[in-house]
């Protein structure tokens, strides 16, 4: 494992911890898209079905468990916690996420590495992860104002994607048979979705002003 991948995994973990912290500390999930969180839960559940059949490393197994558990905890808070649930911006979170699930599934059935149950689930999870942030970005754009922790959450998620691209570049040059174009192309698409957010995040940081997205 190279430093880029490790840093990517850590920023991914930090993003989820920031989100849990926001929900726990403020007892509020305003500004957070429940649909995006449910998509991530589905992404992790689909991708990590290999947790019992495929052993890579202790690190991988622990991270898989942490990602599944933390994302399910967030979804549970947003749906089941009496106080948190009330702050959910239901009327702003209207992105038709079932469409994303259906499109990812169709694409996974058409484009995959091998026609097996696990490989199709894996490809599905890669495609779905690439677009899972869309309901969140749309919600932020609609509400205009982005609170600090929500901004940090999306920033760390975007940083994770950027670092994974550096990781693939590194692996491409250091490993003799590194080719995984499904993950790389999806990863590029996913990172591109953050470009707009990053632009405004950078502006607000440079001007030392509150993060605001244009309507």
């Amino acid at each position: 494992m190279n430093i880029f991948r490790f840093a990517g995994d850590m920023t991914h973990l930090i993003s989820i911890l920031v989100l849990l912290l926001k929900i726990y500390a403020t007892k509020s999930c305003s500004g957070i898209s429940r649909k995006t969180q449910e998509l991530y839960a589905l992404v992790f559940l689909a991708r990590y079905v290999d947790i019992f059949t495929e052993f890579i490393s202790v690190y991988n197994t622990i991270m898989k468990i942490v990602f599944i558990a933390s994302t399910l905890a967030i979804v549970w808070c947003m749906r089941g916690h009496r106080v948190v649930r009330r702050s959910y911006d239901k009327e702003l979170d209207t992105f038709r996420h079932y469409f994303l699930i259906a499109a990812s599934l169709v694409l996974a059935l058409l484009v995959h590495e091998k026609f097996t149950f696990q490989e199709i689930l894996w490809a599905f999870s890669i495609y779905l992860e690439a677009v899972a942030i869309l309901p969140q970005l749309v919600l932020l754009q609609r509400s205009g104002n982005v609170d600090n922790l929500t901004g940090q959450y999306v920033f760390f998620l975007g940083a994770y994607r950027g670092l994974y691209i550096l990781n693939w570049i590194y692996r491409y040059f250091t490993e003799p048979h590194f080719s995984r174009w499904i993950a790389c192309v999806s990863g590029l698409v996913q990172t591109a979705l953050y470009a707009d957010f990053f632009y405004y995040y950078f502006l607000s940081w440079k001007n030392n002003a509150k993060l605001k997205l244009p309507a």
Partner: peptide, 10 residues
């Protein structure tokens, strides 16, 4: 090799 048969990233 292990790289090609397993999805070793998260």
């Amino acid at each position: 090799d292990q790289e090609s048969k397993a999805h070793d990233e998260l």
